[in-house]
Design a protein around this nucleic acid. Structure first.
Lengths: 221, 221, 221, 221
DNA sequence: TATGAATGAGAGTTCATTCAT
DNA sequence: CATGAATGAACTCTCATTCAT
């Protein structure tokens, strides 16, 4: 299982798939960048091709159409995130510790690849139905369900509060993560180019808030 | 002071401003609906005009262009939400109680006007920069700051945990709310047309999760 | 004959017709101004109404449509010019002297009402066929023919060269006038706001050039 | 020096620039025709594309927008005229002879390419400011200045009257040419499809009139 | 593979004109 | 007379997609 990643370290840019044409990678990479900068509708095929240093028509050689291109971008990014979640879930630690790891992973990725995070956080849930309904939607739900399973285990083991349905708890954890990342991206919570120290402080707080939402009311932090 | 609203009950559709032309209202109302259904880019002026039962050009009689129209929609919806938050902040109750009231208000609005919520939650951040950067952005930040002030008071009075910066705490509360609403809108957390009972249950859980994120670790629910 | 003008002095703005509604005049006056500033296609009914300080629809009360409005503007201005030419033609003086008077009159008008000249010189031929084909065209041709008649008399009386057909001679005279006025309007021949002295010098030269075109080759200036 | 033209013969349609895409030429050619027929505002991009037998969007592949397209048409036509003037100026002959050549050249072009002349004479000075202010304006002024330089030489050499400023003299020459061409175009001076003989007669007369405007008063024709 | 010319449906915007008051 | 809301046809420009080379 070459794609299985055991480490939870942020890994960007995406893993080079052996045998994948170099220009295809370039296009995908450019798409991520342009997409992050301009959003789904503001990003034109011409921009992507230009950014990739590739001819117009080549994009259509590798991708059926715009939607497929962008869905590929989503998928790739999510696959990475999903892989990390799976690794964490399969690894050791109590449910709260695993949830904290997931949050930390996401915050770490933000440090090295804010563009990717911007796409995942801000654009995914806001793309047209074609994309939303496709594999991306499924992938997003998968992430949610993986977290929900963690929660379920935590509830069984008495580490997490039981008055929240697992999916609601998972949504709450991801919501805390999402909105804080959005706040960082838009410069509301940190300066647009935060220092390492800023990021560490944010990481601690976001972990604390996310766990607070799902820990049993009387439990110590 | 007719505009001052003391109740936190959901109030939709938007208050009729006296002297405002009826057709302008119709256009605004139609825009909200079409916008919620199709998103910013999927919604064409022709659709709005059609939905409002009004001639194409009239939209341009009342609004300079598409951006301004949609910004007006945003503003109106946010103003309502903001008004509610202000009323709650100015009213009685401890910080945690006030925060719970804000969440409950938003969940109540969802019951009566899911389209409005869909627009606020899913569409606002995906809109083009013109809109994002305009008054909408400001309005959103204002909401965040109002919650942050509530948090600050709660921290002073010993009701809320002090290890979170107020803005981070506010982002976390809104994140929990946002992601759960998004989950309801997309049918992930509830059926697309949830029953009253479903909604009540969701409301309780979301309030619990949001408060959990900001209450002191050892405090009872 | 109140409209018959014996003097060749520039008379602007146009003569108030008794019984003509004041607002109609205002509209006509505004149309001349806006038209001169923005040209036929750049001039919108809204601009004219705004400039006249009058409601939108009132323009359509007094004029059937845009073409008729602008044709009225043309007509009025040309009627003035035509009236002057007729006065001159009916008055004393040899053909060359009369032609010189026509040129001087036009140059004088430019001094007091450049907007009117701009419309007559630059806008008439660029207008849509409806206008060109209408009374304006006729009026323009009338002016040409009046000059041609002057030329004819001059040829009979031995004051003007006979190797030019009268209409060609007339076109040449008007051409010299037209292009020099255009050069003044665009700032190519004089500064955009020429002094009195500049204008006097231009007047002398234009008269000299125009006459040169039609005088017999060997005649003294 | 392929582009250098020593002959003053009318050369239309425009010279094929090697390496220029065929369809670009077709569009430019169609634009000249449609433009001449309908004028700047009456000519729609769809018409041009249709006339060129080309898809709508291709026009925008080669030209940024309508203004740029039409400015290109202007420029090309003027460049040809300008080239001819330069050739004449650089060639032999006294100033009056050169001026006569310029007039004859223009009249010859009219015979072979009335559309081009219509555009240059009737449309250029009447286009929107964007165009007027662009390179076209400059080109027009260049033509004027070239003639003015001819005049200046003629004045120095005693062939032309000295009581006219060179630019005024140039404007007068071009004015005679312009108004007579306009008269021919509109059918006022000749039938709309004049015979060769008509044209020859017109040519002689226009040359005579134009020279008359600038020759010393007492000089023989 | 790779290129970029070519296509054309679609959307936003303008503005002359009408009409109820 | 006077107003300005209401209408909708027309036109420019964009951009995803195709295709010949």
């Amino acid at each position: 299982m070459a794609r299985q990643r055991k480490s939870t370290e942020a890994q960007h840019p995406a893993p080079p798939v052996e045998g994948e044409p170099e220009k295809r990678r370039a296009i995908l990479h450019a798409a991520l960048k342009v997409f992050a900068e301009r959003g789904y509708h503001g990003c034109r095929i011409a921009d992507v091709a230009g950014e990739a240093g590739v001819a117009y028509g080549l994009v259509y050689h590798y991708f059926r159409n715009k939607d497929e291109l962008l869905e590929s971008v989503f998928d790739e990014q999510w696959r990475i995130f999903l892989g990390a979640i799976r690794s964490i879930a399969d690894g050791p630690g109590s449910a709260p510790e695993q949830i904290a790891s997931v949050i930390r992973f996401a915050m770490d990725v933000f440090r090295t690849a804010p563009a990717a995070v911007r796409v995942l956080i801000l654009e995914v849930p806001r793309s047209p139905d074609v994309v939303r309904a496709g594999s991306t939607r499924q992938t997003f739900e998968t992430a949610m369900r993986l977290i929900a399973e963690m929660v379920q285990r935590g509830q069984r083991e008495g580490d997490l509060r039981t008055d929240l349905e697992p999916l609601v708890a998972a949504a709450s954890v991801l919501g805390v993560l999402d909105m804080n990342l959005a706040g960082m991206l838009t410069g509301l919570l940190t300066s647009p180019q935060p220092t390492e120290e800023d990021l560490e402080k944010m990481k601690r707080q976001v972990v604390a808030a996310a766990l607070g939402a799902v820990l049993p009311p009387g439990s110590p932090s």
